[in-house]
């Protein structure tokens, strides 16, 4: 008993519980874990959180999927609508992805107009779908210069715990795989979409995806640039930079982004790409399970 009193006297004031320490010095708290090669949630530095994919969760949508990566849950619903084609591409349909980070999913988000983060993720997904030519937009044409399908791809984040871009992209790709659109008929300016009987192979069509890009994200921690795979919310908020590698099933790159203050070397980027190849392979087998 006497010895404990002594040690308390030797280090006055600064004895916190672990959770107080975490709140006061989040980075230092984190550093203590990283130096031992683990993260506060028990993961190794390069391990990912458990990931699940469920198809067809929304019956009112043409295609839908729910994706969970650890504590992050997103739902993607795709609705197909008959629309007028754009003037510069009369024989092509179009895709409108949108990611919604509403205040329900985390106390970090405020009600009001879409946050910068939500818009950045929406645009990133839009670029990947467009630039990698994930599907031939001509498939979405109903009648040239008259009517095309517009696919409204809406991602709603239900629970936010970091790595929204990976989760959103997986959910978009899974929902696109799940899409079924009833075959329309075009007759003198009127598009008819038959309703009524249950959807089957006869009266509907699926999308023909040319590739399925999936992303793997990392954050860079501290000055020695330790790579942490699949960051959660706490990790995202104390790190120096983020790297996302989007790769398709043949190992072709579709998008790389590196943002943040920390500057990286080429070898680090290479390391990320190698890891992303393995991860996207794992993701593909998760997506194929159902």
């Amino acid at each position: 008993m006497a010895s404990t009193t002594d040690s308390l006297a030797a280090s006055p004031a600064f004895t916190f519980s672990a959770s107080t320490f975490q709140k006061l010095h989040p980075t230092e708290y984190f550093r203590k874990f990283i130096s031992q090669g683990v993260r506060p949630d028990g993961r190794l530095l390069d391990s990912f959180r458990p990931t699940t994919v469920h198809y067809g969760v929304i019956t009112t949508a043409n295609g839908s999927a729910m994706v969970r990566i650890g504590g992050t849950t997103v739902v993607c619903g795709i609705k197909a609508e008959v629309a007028e084609p754009k003037l510069d591409s009369p024989d092509q349909g179009y895709l409108v992805p949108n990611v919604d980070l509403s205040p329900i999913c985390s106390s970090a988000f405020r009600p009001g107009s879409p946050s910068e983060q939500a818009q950045v993720v929406s645009e990133a997904i839009h670029r990947v779908l467009k630039e990698s030519k994930v599907l031939d937009l001509k498939d979405l044409c109903i009648e040239e210069a008259k009517a095309v399908w517009a696919l409204w791809i809406d991602v709603v984040c239900v629970s936010y715990d970091g790595n929204i871009y990976d989760a959103a992209l997986i959910s978009v790709m899974a929902a696109l795989l799940n899409v079924r659109i009833r075959k329309p008929t075009y007759d003198e300016g009127i598009v008819k979409v038959p309703g009524g009987e249950a959807i089957n192979d006869e009266n509907s069509f699926k999308l023909n995806l040319t590739r399925i890009p999936l992303s793997t994200s990392f954050v860079l921690f501290d000055t020695d640039l330790t790579l942490l795979a699949d960051p959660n919310f706490a990790e995202e908020s104390i790190t120096q930079g983020q790297i996302s590698v989007t790769i398709d099933e043949h190992g072709r790159l579709c998008r790389i982004s590196k943002v943040g203050a920390a500057s990286t070397s080429q070898s680090l980027l290479k390391q990320c790409i190698e890891r992303a190849k393995i991860r996207s392979h794992e993701l593909r087998s998760i997506m194929n399970q159902q």
């Binding site: 009112t60 839908s64 619903g77 795709i78 609705k79 509403s102 329900i104 009600p111």
Partner: peptide
């Protein structure tokens, strides 16, 4: 605060 997912209805 109230939020309706755009895909929740028959018509988007």
């Amino acid at each position: 605060e109230f939020n309706i997912a755009p895909f929740s209805t028959g018509e988007r």
